[in-house]
Computed example of a mutant assay.
Amino acid sequence: MNDYYTDLGVERSATAEEIKKAYRKKARTLHPDVNPGPEAEEEFKRVSQAYDVLSDEGKRRQYDMGADPYGGAHDGFGQGFSFSDIMEQFFGTAAGGRGPRSRQTRGQDALVGLRIDLEQAVFGGTQELTVDTAQTCGTCTGDGAQPGTSRRTCDACGGRGEVQMVQRSFLGQVMTSRPCAACQGFGEVIPNPCHECSGQGRVRARRTMNIKIPAGVDSGTRIHLAGEGEVGMGGGPAGDLFVELRVQDHPTFRREGDDLHASIALPMTAAALGTTVSFTTFDGDREVEIRRGTQPGDTIVLDGLGVTHLRGQGRGDLVIHADVRTPTRLDGRQEQLLRDLAETREETNPSGELRDLDDSLMGRLRHAFKGR
């Protein structure tokens, strides 16, 4: 006697619903129409018989008591059985009767890249984008037939899009349905396809559009444009277009989050005495005050002159890093003046003591960037 529980892959304590689910799962993959071959047929026969016994409360009770209701020989199905009966009973739909499929299909989504400059990322704007994509054929307007002609019903399937065949199997006569080879399942044929698109209803073409760039975007940001992707077959609806942005490097400013960083070169004397310099930002020229005694790596923060917050109010800051330049070429008078200054400040013989990295210039720079 077969072990029906093993055939279905369930425990002996399985509920009726668990037995049903196990059978549905195996029937989907083992039916000869789906998985042809003698081994699959034999396993499908065992699974079907197991379900026929275990799904019936009385038969299952007999089986659990040691008696096989069919003596190990009956397959549980009569002649003329169709797989559509199983589909109808357990899956809610029949294997056949799907009808012709539509020529119109949704187009594929598309992903393209777009380079923008840093100023566009700061303020947003509009950028022109050219894409090569599938568009509705202008000659047949997506119909696929040459203008002045039309489609006609397929003679092979009578417009159903599928043909049915009766096959003999161990279950008896099995009715199966297959997509019609003459019309590829559409139910219609195009005797005179459009010369422009060869009956596809769409053509490849180049299209230019203006893309709105939101303020605050960064490299990797994707803009979703619904319905701007490829047009589908047969004039079907277009997919979506995704534009991935890449922000180009700027010669002056470097972005850190929503802050902008830049460096300003200062003579040693200006750093020591203090001064005011003019600095060009994305918002125009700004007067920047340099404090007396400014050290290399010191920062001046200009509030609200950074990148616009993409999801929120306001903008980041503009952080200016002082790059104090030590003179390398001195004439005799300049050198003497510096020697006099060193003597006055008692710096003619500096100790040159080692210091912790966090107190050094590199340490201050590191902390400055971490703090932004």
Rank of each mutant, 00 (worst) to 15 (best):
G144S: 04
G144F: 06
Q146A: 11
P147T: 08
G148K: 11
G148I: 04
S150R: 14
S150A: 13
R151C: 04
R151V: 00
R152E: 13
C154F: 06
C154K: 03
C154T: 03
D155T: 12
A156F: 10
A156E: 14
A156Q: 08
E162S: 13
M165L: 13
R168W: 07
S169V: 05
F170C: 01
L171D: 01
G172S: 03
M175A: 14
T176R: 15
T176P: 00
S177F: 13
C180L: 05
C180Y: 05
C180I: 04
F186M: 09
E188M: 11
I190M: 13
P191G: 10
N192T: 14
H195W: 13
E196L: 12
S198F: 15
Q200R: 15
G201H: 09
G201Y: 01
G201D: 03
V203E: 10
V203K: 05
A205H: 04
A205D: 06
R206Y: 05
R207S: 02
R207F: 06
N210D: 15
I211M: 05
I213M: 02
P214L: 01
A215S: 09
V217N: 00
V217L: 02
S219K: 07
T221M: 05
R222F: 03
R222D: 08
R222I: 08
I223L: 12
L225Y: 09
L225V: 14
G227D: 11
E228I: 10
G229V: 01
E230A: 12
V231A: 09
M233E: 15
G234V: 04
G235Y: 05
G236I: 11
P237F: 10
P237A: 12
D240K: 02
D240S: 04
D240I: 05
D240N: 11
L241P: 00
F242D: 11
V243W: 09
V243A: 07
V243G: 02
E244H: 04
